[in-house]
Design a protein around this nucleic acid. Structure first.
Lengths: 335, 335
DNA sequence: CTGAGCTATTGAAAGGCTTCAATTAAAATC
DNA sequence: GATTTTAATTGAAGCCTTTCAATAGCTCAG
């Protein structure tokens, strides 16, 4: 039942040709008599032969796998990135090795370095290059970075990247909030994020006479968002709108506010980033900015595929436009 | 910059020993003079040597990877399974190759068969064995199945499995709903699920004089849940409680009901399965049954690890207990 | 009919690692 | 100090595939 899998040699013997012939046919390297080819294909089927990936990778240096490193797979944003990448990976015939850092970026260099030895290319969160700027170049493997643009960073990257305009995203959201008459905006950031300054900066730039305040949570969880509600409501600063680092935090916070009897959006309006699936289904439905999570994943994989085949490069950095999704949590003017 | 990575031979030369010695040390196969070992380790560090996984796998037949096949990674239930598995994978030093079937089970056999050739073991959704009963045995690789028990199935599996008691889950939820005085229960299933009969059966078994009705949706999305709301509210049958196939559908449906002006839980109470993170954060918060998603993943990987090391078998099927999570969506008696 | 020019096919090497039997060095015994 | 035991180390084979130079088999021009 658990018999040794057939090898190239077995197939060659069965078809009465040399192993080279079989290998050539498998890799479409040259023309063969149709009759020979048919005989070989038949033998392959009969023996249920599959290439031994180890042996193959030893000589070609290729693995047929791509490594995808995400910060936290439970965050639907990253899940969607994985999903997008997975679709394309399947189309191109790659396996996807998913590494979940679980927000612990400290061993990332080590992890990525290890991963690099067993894949044909890597898709990495832009965030990682902040820890180790030269990481992608030291890998010796093609890599693509994905994530949000960061003012003054990532532009000179040698490594190709799929980036989504971060400042535009903030401004889209900020303008919408200002248009609804809000004047005291709280930005709830994620303390370990490198984008906080960018986000707040963009908001302040368009704020005019409105005030933009700032605070942070320590984990990207709904619990963290919920926990912060009281300090906003009972804090010293009056607030009439909240912009959260992402939808996960926003949803937690939204829930926390409602528990405290705050009316959303009448008393305080609230919004997030990412446009995760559930945002439309919380109450009130959450205004957010679609950060193109799935596109980030699929385009990264496409770009990486090109790099692996060493075709093109094409533009090094692809910029994606965020999309504002206005929903109930910011509808209606301030009272 | 992109110089050839160091090989065993390089290390051996640098340390002044044979390649066998280095290999032995790396695989802790026998005792060496501390001094020799130190010299070798130093050389490894100095040359930044890493084993070539291809070459290694060729001779050992091992890959250092595990394949995890899920039905839909965007469903937080499966995301949590991946997360649980990922934690243990990291602990044991495996890479996790995640394959997302995207609910399309038709090519599963092919996909899994391919995957099996490049991993040391597989973690598969129990659901797959329904398509191809002997799949795990034909793989020639250790496998672990995970998912819900199904009356009259999966008990005689030769393959180890981590199963969660499905009927108990339904009964836990059913009893709770009956205790709140509901008498007309609608079960909203997923049309492609093989567990519908089990779920409904379990509910009917404890229903007494209460009525259990049944309908289905075609995709496991919030949209699908939302879309079905009207047909429940305006349908011919009066309903005072809804049990959904999972939280994703339940959340969509909950939203749809609220849009139609139905008061939850006063008019209709609603519950789901899985206990995904967001269930606590929708309004009203959703009663559900925790299906131990993360444990399913982590225990599957632990079990698989044992099988790969060919230690034990231990019990073939591990049964996990579901946990009822009572929240606002079913609180309070029927009006 | 011969030899040149192609084409279809093959032989053999290479790639990096593990393993087992064999060798050498060290330790123990008398 | 010579000999036996035991421990530390190594040589060489083998894993399976790809590739490149080389061969064999044809065709065709002269």
């Amino acid at each position: 039942m658990n018999k040794r899998p057939a090898t190239l040699k077995d197939v060659a013997a069965a078809a009465g040709v040399s192993t080279s012939t079989v290998s050539m046919i498998l890799n479409r390297r040259s023309q063969f008599k149709p009759e020979v080819e048919a005989r070989v294909r038949e033998a392959i089927l009969a023996l249920n032969y599959r290439q031994n990936p180890g042996a193959r990778s030893m000589v070609t240096g290729l693995f047929g796998s791509i490594g995808l490193v995400v910060l936290d797979i439970r965050n639907p944003h990253f899940t969607n990135v994985v999903h997008g990448a997975s679709i394309k990976a399947q189309a191109y015939g790659y396996n996807l090795i998913v590494v979940d850092l679980k927000e612990d970026i400290s061993h990332a260099t080590q992890t990525v370095d290890n991963l690099a030895r067993r894949v044909d290319g890597l898709i990495l969160s832009l965030r990682l290059t902040e820890e180790a700027r030269d990481l992608p170049r030291e890998l010796g493997k093609p890599a693509v970075l994905f994530g949000q643009t960061l003012q003054g960073h990532f532009q000179d990257l040698q490594t190709p990247s799929i980036q989504i305009r971060g400042r535009e995203a903030s401004m889209l959201l900020g303008r919408h909030i200002l248009e609804t008459g809000r004047r005291r905006i709280m930005y709830v950031g994620y303390s370990r994020s490198i984008w906080n300054a960018d986000r707040v900066g963009a908001l302040r730039e368009i704020a005019g006479d409105a005030e933009v305040m700032e605070m942070s949570v320590d984990t990207q969880t709904m619990e963290a968002g919920e926990a912060i509600a009281a300090s906003i409501v009972y804090g010293p600063q009056k607030v009439d709108a909240i912009v959260c680092y992402n939808d996960v935090i926003a949803i937690g916070l939204l829930h926390g506010l409602c528990d405290l009897g705050v009316r959303v959006p009448e008393d305080i309006s609230i919004a997030g980033f990412d446009n995760i699936a559930v945002s439309r289904y919380v109450t009130p439905s959450l205004t957010t900015v679609d950060m193109r999570s799935e596109d980030l994943g699929s385009r990264s994989l496409e770009r990486l595929h090109l790099a692996i085949e060493s075709r093109d490069p094409g533009p090094t950095a692809v910029l994606l436009e965020p999309r504002l999704m206005v929903r109930a949590s910011t509808q209606g003017s301030a009272k």
